[in-house]
Design a protein around this nucleic acid. Structure first.
Length: 577
RNA sequence: GCGCCGGUAGCUCAGCUGGAUAGAGCACCAGGCUUCGAACCUGGGGGUCGGGGGUUCGAAUCCCUCCCGGCGUGCCA
């Protein structure tokens, strides 16, 4: 729709430039869906952009352009000049009506495109280490990453969803120690540290209480799930594990149990990964050593204070970073570099890291390092998201990882359901904070819950189709729909809206911003629900057979777009509610 | 201190590759259903787009500066 118009303007502009002997590149201009019907279907700002270059008043230029566009009278209805020099274009209704057949024909495919050119894209997200249940931040990241992946899929990319976790480091060891401590406490061989000892990092930490040693690590995991794992180990093995190290069976069991819980949560959320990868495998196949060696060859590595450093300042960063601690154990940075390098060895054209704001500092170091090792750094993208706060009864609910008083994804899902959870999580753009309004999400008067507005528009449309079938009216197909009966202004407006869908997906995918999809769907439902509401003017199934067919076709088109859009958000499109 | 992200209606937020009277949901006010198309609809009030400067024919959008909030600035991840 827009492309043809754009072409028209382009050639008109070329003509004007040529006239003046201007052989420079044509300027960038915009054709946008007009914000108001009084400005037509599309508005073009080319005349304003050209004003200075041609040394003529924009409105005069607009006249010339308008004349040119008017020539396409088989599909252009009217062209006007308005304001400082906008060219507003009205298309003939048939231009919009013709779209209906296309949508009915394409069905589930409508909206998808090939702009991705089958480029291989990896989306890495969640990547939470299995030290505890997924928190709201992970939940947001999961939904965000998943929606980006769905969007890239729909726009013709070859997508791999990947979850990477650090299973080799200190964190997992502390996890094992935490479980071991709880195990020994349950056997009466150790004392639990008092809760207030956790309050601050510098508060007193007892070595023993009542003659029993305190073995719980200072930075251990305090959640109740740790005790549960310890409890089940105790039931299976009695006191037989008392002399086991924390890094062995305790760690392994905890990792397995927690990871399996995480996967369960993700599955429940409708998130499936193609690849799970971990740090250990990078050690095993020698990639960690190789990466360090190659960095060293590049002269980017030096020793200081017994540790091995990355000379990041040579790569334009503000400080150097430790790659290998003086204990001989790498920091997370080195495996991260090795991992990102491996991504490109695996043949991805583009790699997208979805990360929380707390990891943002890490990213430039990884990009700089893999860049130094020969990877074109602009092929690594970062999608950063801020954290999630929870508001209930008008107040913010305090979240503390340290005290394990955070709300988990599981808990929230059980309160609001997967659809509402996903919808709320993907409704905001990633860079901003996300306030999850529990009052709205669990609104007792759930008519107010914005997540349902779009679903309801879909459900009631299905209801109309059911009713038509009950009455013996068959649903039209692309050939029989007869869209020219759709002549009302509001019907054309709806057609224009569904026409935007492919563009919305392409733009949202390119920008890695799925929230545009939810706003678009809200807009569409915001045209459709009122249309359906007015049964006197817009009765879908009436005794006028031709009009009924056309309107049922319109209903099917809207239903298709709503369903396709909701699918991209991972939200169900119910046939009844 | 420095870096990144935010500051738009009472609240939560879209709009930010510059465009014409700044939008939505919730809340509030006034209306519409014997739920077979009301989980909806109609109308209304509500704004120094954090402040100030600049670039531009035109700025919520770009630049500078200041203020406020979050995150980071680890030999934690």
């Amino acid at each position: 729709m827009k492309e043809a118009l754009e072409e028209r303007f382009r050639s008109a502009i070329a003509g004007l430039l040529e006239e003046r002997g201007d052989s420079g590149a044509p300027p960038a201009f915009a054709i946008e869906a007009s914000r108001s019907p009084q400005y037509g279907d599309f508005a073009c700002n080319a005349a304003l952009v050209l004003g200075k270059r041609l040394g003529q008043p924009p409105r005069a230029i607009a006249e010339r352009l308008a004349a040119e566009v008017r020539n396409a009278s088989d599909w252009v209805e009217r062209v006007e000049i308005a304001g400082p020099g906008f060219v507003n274009v009205w298309l003939r209704d048939s231009r919009w009506q013709d779209l209906l057949g296309t949508i009915l024909e394409e069905g589930q495919r409508y909206g998808t495109s090939k702009v991705g050119a089958r480029k291989r894209v990896q989306v890495e997200f969640v990547s939470a280490n299995p030290t505890g249940p997924l928190t709201l931040g992970h939940g947001r990241q999961g939904v965000l990453g998943d929606c980006i992946a769905r969007l890239l899929d729909a726009t013709g990319h070859d997508v791999t969803r990947e979850y990477y976790f650090n299973d080799g480091g200190r964190q997992m060891r502390v996890l094992g120690e935490s479980v071991r401590a709880r195990y020994l406490e349950q056997l009466g061989r150790a004392a639990a540290p008092p809760t207030q000892a956790f309050a601050a990092a510098d508060s007193a930490w007892p070595v023993e209480i009542d003659g029993l040693p305190v073995v719980f690590p200072r930075d251990g995991y305090q959640g109740g799930y740790i005790s549960e794992i310890a409890d089940s180990l105790r039931r299976e093995h009695g006191d037989g594990l008392a002399d086991e190290p924390g890094d062995g069976v305790f760690r392994k069991t905890a990792e397995e149990r927690i990871f399996s819980e995480i996967r369960k949560t993700l599955t429940e959320l409708g998130i499936e990964f193609d690849v799970y990868s971990n740090e250990t495998s990078l050690y095993e196949d020698g990639r960690i050593d190789a990466t360090l060696r190659d960095l060293r060859v590049k002269g980017l590595v030096y020793e200081k204070d017994g540790a091995v450093w990355l000379r990041a300042t040579d790569l334009g960063l503000d400080r150097d970073r430790v790659l290998v601690r003086k204990t001989g154990e790498p920091t997370y940075l080195l495996p991260d570099i090795a991992y990102h390098r491996q991504k490109f060895e695996r043949g991805f054209d583009t790699v997208i890291d979805v990360q929380g704001a707390d990891h943002i500092d890490q990213f430039p170091f990884v990009v700089a390092a893999v860049g130094a090792l020969g990877v074109e750094a602009d092929r690594v993208e970062l999608v950063m998201h801020q954290f999630v706060t929870l508001t209930e009864a008008g107040r913010q609910v305090k979240q503390s990882t340290r005290r394990a008083t955070y709300v988990t994804v599981d808990e929230l899902i059980s309160r609001v359901g997967v659809d509402v959870f996903r919808f709320f999580m993907v409704q905001r753009r990633a860079e901003g904070h996300l306030d999850f309004d529990l009052d709205l999400a669990t609104e007792t008067d759930w008519k107010k819950n914005p997540a349902y507005y779009i679903q309801y528009a879909h459900a009631r449309t299905c209801g109309i189709e059911r009713k038509a079938l009950e009455q013996g009216v068959s649903l039209p197909d692309a050939n029989s729909v007869g869209a020219s009966a759709l002549v009302l202004r509001e019907e054309i407006e709806i057609l224009k809206k569904v026409a935007e869908f492919p563009e919305v997906l392409a733009r949202a995918g390119a920008a890695r911003e799925p929230h545009h999809v939810s706003y678009y769907l809200r807009d569409l439902a915001g045209l459709w629900n009122p249309y359906l509401q007015d049964r006197t003017h817009h009765r879908i199934v009436s005794n006028e057979a031709e009009l009924s067919r056309a309107r049922l076709g319109l209903a099917r088109a809207v239903r298709t777009v709503l369903a396709n859009g909701l699918a991209l958000l991972g939200v169900t499109a119910p046939e009844q509610m």
